[in-house]
Design a protein around this nucleic acid. Structure first.
Length: 772
RNA sequence: GGGUUCAUAGUCCAGUUGGUUAUGACGUCGCCCUUACACGGCGAAGAUCCAGGGUUCGAAUCCCUGUGGACCCA
C-alpha cells in the first residue's frame, strides 16, 4: 500500500500552515466553565535585542504546561502580556536618542519610550507565536495600558485607605545614574577591587595617633563618630576622647560599639552618613546628626569643601592624594570589597536620605511564610529562595520612584496645607498633567492642588498580574472562577522580587495566596556554562534558530535538555541534533501510514511485549506531566521510540505486517499494535511538539479532529511482559553481531538457536533475521 | 561568614526506597544502501562515579570531613 505521507523528512515550513489552521479554528479559546486552569504567565520585558534564547525556551515550556492541562480536560486561561513599565526602556531610549530623561519634556520622553517598546514588542510577539504558544494573543495585554495602570493605582488606593502606605524620610539606596531610590531587591553584590586606606587620626590633647581603615575616605567630611569594640584592649584608653578628622580638622568622639570588628582593618571604624547600611543603623542608634555629603547627582556637596562638585570616585582619589601629601596615610591595602551595585545601571549605590512612600511589609512576613509554605514549588528546593528572602526583610518597601515611564502615583497635595489626597479607584490618573479630580481639601478646605510627579516601582504593577488576568475589580463572576490562579511559572532569579511581591500584594488585597503552584526555572547559559550577557557577546538569538530548525525542534530540545529548576546550556549544535528525533518519528509515521487503521485485534506475545513497554512509558509521562516536568516524558518517549519500538519491535513485525508467511489474524494484530503505539506516542508528545504531532495525527487520520482536542492516554496495566525486553534486545544484538562476523548482509539467512525463554516470539524472530 | 545547589567517559546528562556487568545522547573510530528513515542501521573504543573517612554482607546512591564550581543572603 502507498504511504499517505510521501516526504522522507519533517519540513518545519509546514509549521506556518498549521499555525494558521489553529488560529482560524480558535482551538485554544478559553471558556470560563468546568474545570478551570489559570496560568499567571510572566509578561516578558522588551528591553532590547536580541531576546534571550533561554527566555524563549522558558515560554515553550510554559506552553507545555498549558497544553498538558488542556489534554487533561481542563479549560485553560493562558494569558499573554507584555511588561512595559520601568527603567530598562528609559535607559534604552536615552541611549537610542542620546538624551537625558530628566532634561527632556516628560510627554515627549514618554512617547519615545512607547515607540521603542512597540518595535521590541513586535519581535517578541512574533517569536512567541512562531513557537506555537497556545496563549490568548487576540487579547494580549500591556502593563502600561490604561486598564492595567488603573488597576495598579486602584490597588494602591485600596491599600492607602487601609493605612498600609506611609511617607518617610530615611536613608535609602540611591542610584544616581538613574536618579531614583531603589529597593533592596534591586541590589546585587559584586566583589570590586578597592583601596582600603589606613588613615591617621590625632587624638586631641595628646600625641597619640589612632589609625582607622576605610574604603570610603571621601566620606571623612560626613564622619560623626569613631567606634571601637568594647573588648578591644588596644583602644580602651582612648574611649571617650575626641579625635581630629584628618584633612577636615573637625573633632569627633571615640565610642564603643559591638559592631566594630577587632580583626577588620585597625579595629577602629569611622561612622559616616552613609557608607553602608551599618552606618545607617549606627546613626539611628547613637542619635548622630546626619551630614549630607553626596547629592542626588552623585557628586560631593558643599560640606565636602575642596572636594565639592566632584563625583564620588574622583573625590576619593583626590582625598587619598591629599592625605598622602600630608603624610596622613599609614598604608593602603588593595582588597576585594563586596560592593552593593544597582541591578539596572550597574554602578555602586549610595545611601542618601530622601522622602519616599513606603508600603508596609514587615508585619506581613509571618503571614507570607505561612502562605508560602502551602504553595507547591516545582522543584521543591526553590521554596528555600523565598524563605531565605523572608528571613532577611528588615525594612518596608520603598515604592516611589523618580522616573517617568511607569504608573503614576495617584496623589494630589493641597497647595495650602500639603495634605495628600487620593482619588476614587477605577480610573487611570496622571497627576503630573491631569486636572485634580478632588474639589476641596478635606483638611483645610482649600481648592487648589498640585499633582505628585513620581511613579511606582515597577514591581507594584507586576505584583498584581494574577489579579489583572482574573479581572479583579472588573468582572466579579469571572474573578470568582479564575482566582486564585493555578500556577505561576517564572525564573528563579526573580523569586525575591516578582514572586515575593505578588504574594505580599495579593495577600494584602485578597487575603489568600495568588496561586496553588509555583514553577521555577533556571537560567539559560551559553555552551560553556557561562551566563549570557550582551557585554560578553555570547547571547544566542532565538529567532534564527527557530527559523532554521523549526519550533518543534526547539521545543523538544527545551524539554529534553532542561531539567526543571537547574541552569541549562544553550547551543545551536545541540538543538540541531534534536531534529533527528523528529525525523525518526516522521519516518516511523510514514511507514505506518501505508497500513490501514485497525481498531481491535487478537494480539500475539510480541505485540503484548511492546504494549507492556508502552504502558510503562505512559505511566512515566503522566508522572512527569503531573509535576510539570517535561524532561522525564521527552527523554522516556525518545528512548522508547528509538531504541525499542523502531529498533526492535518494528523490525520484528515487519514481515508479519506485510503478511509474508503469516495469517491474516496475525497480520492484523501487528498493524493494530503499530498504530496503537504510534497514536499513543503522538498523544503523549502533543504538548511538547504540537506541530508535527498534529500534522501526523491528521495525515494518518487517527481521528477527524486535531490532536489538541484529544485527551491523554491512560495506563492500561496489561500483564507485565517487560521481563523479556533484555532477552529480546540481546538476542537481536547477538544475531546482528554474528552476521557481521560472518560478513553476511542483514537479510541473509543464518543458523541460530532461539533461547528457551524467547520461544513464544520465535515466529517473529525467525522472519526478522531469516533464521534457519 | 551563613544558606541553597552541583560534581558520573572528550562533552552533556540519567541513575526511583543502597543489590550482579553504571543509562542515554553528542562527538570519535570501524563496517553496512537491510523495500520507514544515510537526518539511517550495526558494532567498537572511551568512567578509579571529585578526594578521604564512616555505616553495611554490599555504596555512584546514606552519613561525616575536605576540595572545586554556580547561585542566593549578610
Amino acid at each position: 500500500m502507498e504511504p499517505k505521507i510521501k516526504e522522507t523528512a519533517w519540513n518545519p515550513e509546514i509549521e506556518k500552515q498549521i499555525l494558521k489552521q489553529w488560529e482560524d479554528s480558535k482551538i485554544y479559546e478559553f471558556r470560563p466553565e468546568g474545570d478551570i486552569f489559570v496560568i499567571d504567565t510572566p509578561p516578558p520585558y522588551p528591553s532590547g535585542r536580541p531576546w534571550h534564547i533561554g527566555a524563549a525556551a522558558h515560554y515553550a515550556q510554559i506552553d507545555m504546561i498549558a497544553r498538558t492541562a488542556r489534554m487533561e480536560g481542563k479549560n485553560v486561561l493562558f494569558p499573554i502580556g507584555i511588561d512595559r513599565n520601568g527603567l530598562p526602556v528609559e535607559m534604552y531610549t536615552e541611549k537610542k536618542y542620546n538624551i537625558r530623561m530628566h532634561e527632556t519634556d516628560r510627554a515627549e520622553f514618554l512617547n519615545l519610550c512607547s515607540t521603542a517598546l512597540d518595535d521590541l514588542e513586535a519581535e517578541m510577539i512574533q517569536i512567541m507565536k512562531s513557537l506555537g504558544l497556545s496563549g490568548n494573543f487576540s487579547e494580549y495585554y500591556r502593563t502600561d495600558s490604561e486598564q492595567y495602570r488603573s488597576l495598579t493605582q486602584a490597588t494602591f488606593i485600596e491599600l492607602w485607605k487601609k493605612g498600609m502606605v506611609y511617607i518617610a524620610n530615611r536613608p535609602n539606596n540611591y542610584d544616581w545614574v538613574t536618579g531614583t531610590t531603589i529597593a533592596d531587591a534591586e541590589i546585587i553584590y559584586e566583589d570590586i577591587p578597592t583601596k582600603l586606606v589606613y588613615m591617621k587620626f590625632k587624638i586631641k590633647d595628646s600625641d597619640m595617633i589612632l589609625t582607622i581603615a576605610s574604603t570610603r575616605p571621601e566620606l571623612l567630611c560626613a564622619c560623626q563618630a569613631i567606634i571601637v569594640n568594647p573588648d578591644d584592649e588596644r583602644y580602651s584608653s582612648v574611649v571617650g576622647k575626641n579625635a581630629v578628622i584628618p584633612v577636615i580638622n573637625r573633632e569627633v568622639q571615640i565610642r564603643t560599639h559591638p559592631s566594630a570588628e577587632k580583626e577588620f582593618g585597625s579595629g577602629a571604624v569611622m561612622v559616616c552618613s552613609y557608607g553602608d547600611q551599618n552606618d545607617v543603623a549606627l546613626f539611628r542608634e547613637l542619635k548622630l546628626e546626619e551630614i549630607v555629603a553626596i547629592g542626588k547627582n552623585g557628586r560631593m556637596t558643599e560640606v565636602a569643601g575642596a572636594y565639592s562638585g566632584l563625583k564620588v570616585k574622583q573625590a576619593r582619589e583626590k582625598i587619598i592624594e591629599d592625605l598622602q601629601n600630608q603624610n596622613l596615610v599609614e598604608k593602603i591595602e588593595n582588597i576585594n570589597h563586596r560592593t552593593p551595585i544597582s541591578e539596572r545601571s550597574k554602578i555602586p549605590i549610595e545611601i542618601i536620605a530622601m522622602e519616599e512612600y513606603y508600603l508596609r511589609q514587615k508585619e506581613s512576613v509571618e503571614k507570607i511564610k505561612e502562605l508560602g509554605s502551602k504553595i507547591v514549588f516545582h522543584p521543591s528546593m526553590h521554596k528555600q529562595i523565598l524563605m531565605n528572602w523572608l528571613e532577611s526583610i528588615t525594612i518596608d518597601w520603598p515604592i516611589s520612584r523618580r522616573r517617568f515611564y511607569g504608573t503614576e502615583i495617584p496623589i494630589w497635595y493641597c497647595k495650602k496645607c500639603s495634605e495628600p489626597h487620593v482619588p476614587e479607584p477605577g480610573k487611570y490618573y496622571r497627576p503630573w498633567k491631569d486636572a485634580c479630580p478632588i474639589s476641596k481639601c478635606t483638611k483645610c478646605g482649600a481648592t487648589e492642588f498640585v499633582g505628585e510627579e513620581r511613579t511606582f516601582d515597577t514591581w507594584m504593577d507586576s505584583s498584581v498580574s494574577p489579579l489583572y488576568v482574573s479581572k479583579y475589580n472588573r468582572d466579579e463572576e469571572f474573578f470568582k472562577k479564575t482566582y486564585p490562579a493555578s500556577i505561576r511559572p517564572q525564573s528563579k532569579d526573580i523569586v525575591r522580587t516578582w514572586l515575593y511581591y505578588t504574594i505580599l500584594r495579593c495577600e494584602q488585597l485578597t487575603g489568600v495566596t495568588p496561586w496553588k503552584d509555583a514553577w521555577i526555572m533556571g537560567y539559560g547559559v551559553d555552551e560553556h556554562g557561562a551566563k549570557m550577557s550582551k557585554s560578553k557577546g555570547n547571547v544566542v538569538d532565538p529567532l534564527p534558530v527557530i527559523q532554521k530548525f523549526g519550533a518543534d525542534t526547539f521545543r523538544f530540545w527545551s524539554a529534553s535538555e532542561i531539567n526543571l529548576g537547574y541552569d541549562f546550556r544553550c547551543s545551536e549544535q545541540k538543538i540541531e541534533t534534536t531534529k533527528k528525533f523528529l525525523s525518526k518519528l516522521w519516518n516511523i509515521s510514514r511507514f505506518l501510514s501505508g497500513f490501514p487503521i485497525i481498531k481491535s485485534a487478537k494480539t500475539t506475545p510480541t505485540d503484548n511485549w511492546i504494549l507492556s513497554e508502552l504502558d510503562n512509558v505512559v505511566s512515566e509521562c503522566r508522572k512527569g506531566f503531573e509535576d510539570y516536568n517535561f524532561f522525564v516524558p521527552s527523554t522516556s518517549i525518545r528512548e522508547f521510540t528509538w531504541n525499542l519500538f523502531a529498533a526492535h519491535y518494528i523490525e520484528m513485525v515487519k514481515g508479519r505486517a506485510y503478511s509474508t508467511g503469516f495469517s491474516e489474524e496475525e497480520r492484523d494484530a501487528a498493524i493494530f499494535t503499530l498504530h496503537k503505539v504510534l497514536s499513543t506516542l503522538l498523544l503523549l508528545l502533543a504538548p511538547i511538539t504540537p506541530f508535527i504531532t498534529d500534522y501526523l495525527w491528521q495525515q494518518i487520520q487517527y481521528s477527524d479532529k486535531t490532536v489538541h482536542k484529544e485527551k491523554f492516554p491512560q495506563t492500561e496495566n496489561p500483564q507485565d511482559w517487560t521481563k523479556f525486553t533484555k532477552s529480546i534486545t540481546e538476542f537481536n544484538s547477538n544475531v546482528w553481531n554474528k552476521k557481521k562476523e560472518q560478513s553476511l548482509s542483514l537479510k541473509d539467512a543464518i543458523e541460530m538457536e532461539i533461547p528457551e525463554d524467547l520461544q513464544q516470539f520465535a515466529k517473529d524472530l525467525k522472519a526478522m533475521h531469516n533464521l534457519r
